[in-house]
Amino acid sequence: MLVLLPPSEGKAPSGRGAPLKPETLSLPGLSEARRAVLDELTELCAADEEKAREVLGLSEGLRGEIAKNTELRTAGTRPAGEVYTGVLYDALDLASLDTAARRRAARSLLVFSGLWGAVRVTDRIPPYRCSMGVRLPGLGALGAHWRAPMAAAMPEAVGSGLVLDLRSSAYTAAWKPKGEVAERTASVRVLHAPTRKVVSHFNKATKGRIVRGLLESGAAPSGPAELVEALRDLGYEVEATAPSAAGRPWSLDVLVDEIH
């Protein structure tokens, strides 16, 4: 099983580890595309703070993030699973998993990123600010920039198993499963059961708990139908919609009564 996650805007401070070593990151086929984003992002942030703030969509209060982007090659790094600190990652709480579950996380979790394309939670990266929705002056929209390199790199990462897609819409622009891979992909929405509406904070937290539950249980569903059963075994109410045509993913709605 490969679980596709969005990153978080919230990031931990720079780590104490060695600076970034791009050649050590997973999915080495993305190296050239990563270098292009890293080069333009650091140059933009060093050359024109006001333009960088506009391009990155940062409020005045987040102006300090621009200076951090200028130091991406020299800042200390942490495992990506420690760098991302948003609601989903707080609920997932990788640090408190037992050894076996952490090993499963290292194998199965892939975090999409505007800067890195995608990384595993064990890859060491510095904190950064660059969402997939950014349009850099030279490279253009990052979702489009990543599309070709991700299409080339993802088949090996996906392998022959289930793909559990928990990404937000901005990150699905970088890679969409097609054909036979799509048929073993399940995308998940978390809905407030009484209203049948998505509530952002609640949605992210529940997705984090779902991933944690799967990692702790050691569940290894081979396809979307088996995933539905695994989630029900974990106590979730799940409504599944099988694809209406070949080459399309499954859609799963997880219904939860309480928003917390």
Rank of each mutant, 00 (worst) to 15 (best):
M1E: 14
M1Y: 07
P6V: 07
P6Q: 10
P6N: 11
P13E: 01
S14K: 05
R16I: 07
G17Q: 02
P19S: 14
P22R: 08
P22W: 04
T24C: 09
S26R: 13
L27E: 08
P28Q: 15
E32N: 08
V37D: 10
L38Q: 12
L41C: 04
E43M: 08
L44H: 00
A47F: 13
E49C: 04
A52K: 01
E54G: 01
L62Y: 09
R63Q: 04
E65F: 12
I66M: 15
I66Y: 10
T74C: 12
A75V: 09
G76C: 06
T77R: 05
R78M: 13
P79W: 13
P79S: 14
A80G: 08
Y84F: 14
L88W: 08
D90M: 10
A91D: 05
L94H: 02
A95F: 03
D98P: 07
A100Y: 14
R102P: 00
R104F: 06
A105S: 13
A105H: 10
A106F: 11
L109I: 11
L110E: 01
G114W: 03
L115P: 00
T122L: 03
I125H: 01
P127I: 02
C130K: 09
M132Y: 11
G133Y: 01
G133A: 04
G138W: 08
G143M: 03
A144C: 12
H145W: 10
A148F: 01
M150C: 11
A153K: 13
S160V: 10
G161L: 09
L162A: 04
L166E: 07
L166T: 06
L166W: 14
R167F: 14
T172N: 09
A173L: 05
A173H: 10
K176S: 08
E180I: 02
H192N: 13
A193Y: 05
A193C: 15
P194K: 00
V198F: 03
T206Y: 14
G208R: 10
V211A: 04
R212T: 06
G213W: 00
G213S: 03
L214S: 12
L215I: 05
S217Q: 08
A219G: 06
P224N: 13
E226S: 15
D233M: 13
Y236Q: 06
Y236T: 06
E237H: 11
A240E: 11
A242D: 07
A242R: 10
A242V: 03
P243V: 14
A246T: 00
W250I: 01
L252Q: 10
D253W: 12
V254W: 07
